[in-house]
Nucleic acid binder design. Structure first.
Lengths: 344, 344
DNA sequence: CTGAAAGCGCTTACAG
DNA sequence: CTGAAAGCGCTTACAG
């Protein structure tokens, strides 16, 4: 038909109906006679017609797109993305696709302008935030965004003042699970490796679980065993190197993420320390690479598929104006070789 | 002002100019008086105004978006994405952002409908394809897409009939580099592990490099050393398990990807075979996890940043109607511990 | 350098 | 169940 691109008017002309009916039929409106609908769809197929997303988006004011915003800490080099977020990525895009939403992806510094960059500009109907850097800085911003009507979900946090926006693992229980496992193997001086400050509430909860496990076992909580490490492999390596140099006695190490655990394992290997005979190591996340080390890493598994589904479904619920609930997902102890005991 | 969203008419009203002038000013048109432009931009900032992407896209027929389509082989389980593609992802989004393009991401089976799903529907101005499954099936489709005016770039291939669309590493040279390294360490019976059939032209080229290195060293090419493995960790594991069971003699192993090498290393470890003392192993890609193994994996490094930049810039060039050239990017030998010799 | 006007291709009240 | 009409918010010839 003619020279330009195929439009709904072309379909209408061929089908002998109005353009409005074509629009309704292609969107499966119940207002259209089933036979008419099938005829229209058949013609659309023959002409390789697709609804123009810009036109539909302009008219309906919905882009049917969600923006996935990955925050990278400015201190890390720009090449490496937190692999835990990467493992959410596939499930997020698949869940969104099943709900007929496109996914825009962006890795960037925190801008004050998410809301405007994506929602106000009609590029996305809502946002999924992964990573948030320093929570002390973020908390106020998230609350304000929520008040301004931003539609977003965020992974990792479980703060009460962001009802419906947050999806996280049961971090306290996870930390307890990891620590109990080490205690059950007879470990007494367990290093906690990570940043359990207010900047990282989810890591702080894991530390609280660590403390709870100690209390329940009647073990003392020694603050000198709480060692700071940023959430990077190199930071884990450095922290353990300093730890070994300090001469502090310890027989186990709970790394608050697998990434930190990877660095720790590398450093212990380099130092000739036997895992798990001398030091037991447990991580958190269950990244795919946890099985690459020898011994392979015992860790707390987060179900990234469930997390991704919750992030997407809560967000789409919000977009549709439904009431959604925040969720804390269960975590599981995945026993491999790095703690000793059962498997190797 | 008033109740609805802020539009360019609101800005125009406040600035005392026409809406057309606002549109021009915000797009930095040289047609606008610099002072007027600054005044308009200032007002836009004050009102938190953003151009509506759907409206702009409809009018201009450009979405300023590129679609990143990751093909997953239907035989793999749906949870694991090829980590090499993941390492391209960050660089692709950053390069696109620098060029003012959004990135839509989709993991999906090969549909015959890319062109229509994305380009015809005005969801994206072009596509980057990562992974293509069976090349025998894909080749004709890519040629047809190209003929139909699809704008796309694809990584991995270097076929002559897709001028400008393809970006790849110098696979032959890479295979030669890897094999020469093993030969230089005195290895004589080098397993080639991977699928070097016509289904995977880039792996076939790596095998040709393997052969070339043998010829140059005066070593015979023994076809029984060419072992099939799909590009998955588990496939690499299985292939090596069978290889060991077969009793075939070999002293080195060139895995056509790191992913296969990871499986191979796991199997050798499990079987108590010492790497590199008994068997030298070299991979291809230099995934982040290559350093997790002990010994860490010697491999051929692909520069994912350069590859991503080429994929994005060629695609945007095509979108703008420019003439673009296919590229084959240089590869580098990254020596770690798995081959013996220098480092550990 | 600026403005008035057209129109991109849809969705959705409104009327029947 | 269907159609005529309006209008979403821009960009871009066209005219001056």
């Amino acid at each position: 038909m003619g020279s330009g691109k195929t439009t709904s008017f072309d379909i209408a002309h061929k089908a002998g109906v109005s353009q409005a009916t074509v629009s309704r039929a292609l969107r499966d409106s119940p207002l259209v006679n089933p036979k008419t609908r099938e005829r229209i769809k058949q013609i659309a197929r023959e002409l390789n017609y697709r609804v123009d997303r810009s036109a539909a988006g302009l008219r309906s004011q919905h882009s049917k797109t969600i923006a996935l915003l990955l925050y990278e800490d400015p201190t890390t080099d720009d090449s490496q993305i937190n692999p835990f977020f990467l493992s959410l990525l596939g499930h997020i895009t698949r869940t969104a696709a099943a709900e007929k939403y496109d996914v825009l992806i962006s890795f960037q510094q925190l801008s004050d302008d998410w809301l405007h960059e994506y929602q106000i500009s009609n590029r996305a109907d809502g946002m999924i935030l992964l990573g948030y850097g320093n929570y002390a800085h973020m908390a106020a911003k998230l609350t304000r965004l929520s008040d301004e009507g931003a539609r977003f979900t965020i992974f990792g946090l479980s703060t009460a003042d962001l009802k419906g926006h947050t999806i996280s693992g049961q971090n306290l229980e996870g930390g307890e699970l990891a620590t109990k496992h080490l205690v059950s193997l007879g470990r007494k001086r367990i290093i906690f490796l990570g940043d359990a400050s207010d900047e990282h509430p989810e890591f702080k909860l894991r530390y609280e679980g660590y403390c709870k496990a100690h209390q329940e076992a009647g073990l003392p909580i020694d603050p000198s065993l709480k060692i700071l490490s940023e959430n990077q492999e190199t930071a884990g390596y450095e922290a353990v190197a300093q730890l070994l140099e300090s001469g502090l006695e310890f027989d186990a190490l709970f790394a608050v993420t697998d990434l930190i655990a990877f660095g720790a394992l590398k450093c212990l290997r380099k130092s000739g320390i036997k895992v798990p005979q001398e030091i037991s190591v447990v991580g958190f996340d269950d990244l795919p690479a946890a099985s690459y080390f020898s011994p392979s890493l015992t860790t707390i598994k987060q179900d990234t598929r469930l997390a991704a589904e919750a992030l997407v479904k809560n967000l789409i619920g919000m977009i549709k104006g439904e009431d959604v609930q925040s969720q804390q997902l269960p975590l599981f102890l995945k026993i491999r070789g790095s703690c000793g005991g059962r498997k190797t």
